[in-house]
Amino acid sequence: MTTETLLTYLPYGPDFLFLDSIEELSELGIKGHYHFKPELWFYASHFKNQPVTPGVILIECMAQIGLVCFGIYLISKEDTTREVSQTGLALSSSEIDFYKPVYPDEKVTVVSDIVYFRFNKLKCKVKMLNSQNELVCKGVLSGMLTV
């Protein structure tokens, strides 16, 4: 599966898609990128006159790249006959530490390394880096893939 095809399987609408491109993809992990554009809807309110990307959105960005995208790829590798276009993911746990804020117009890179993928549960070590290659946040995310 090409990375372009993979992106078409993502179940998000444009207002809640936090992934622009995938740079690396294998059965061991994934690396993807996202640009937090200044006009994104949440900056006007988080915070008033002091826009900064909410931590929950950073987690969402990490989950979309590190669990959902990666999970769809793993499912397609595991069983090539499986219909992956309807794949969804329920986030089941997140333990994330934050180190740096992400301001409007920043570009981030998300790197996710597999811990295990068993019985449709995907657990990964995930980190986010900013364009200076500084650690923004890292931790462990798990989710259940539904097909």
Binding site: A90, S92, S93, R118, F119, K121, S142, G143, M144
Partner: peptide, 23 residues
Amino acid sequence: INSSHLVDIVLDVEDAFKIALTN
């Protein structure tokens, strides 16, 4: 027990009893 923890239990059972479980 939610579906995610059900998988955790299955994995812990595999380790504790040294067995492999299938879908």
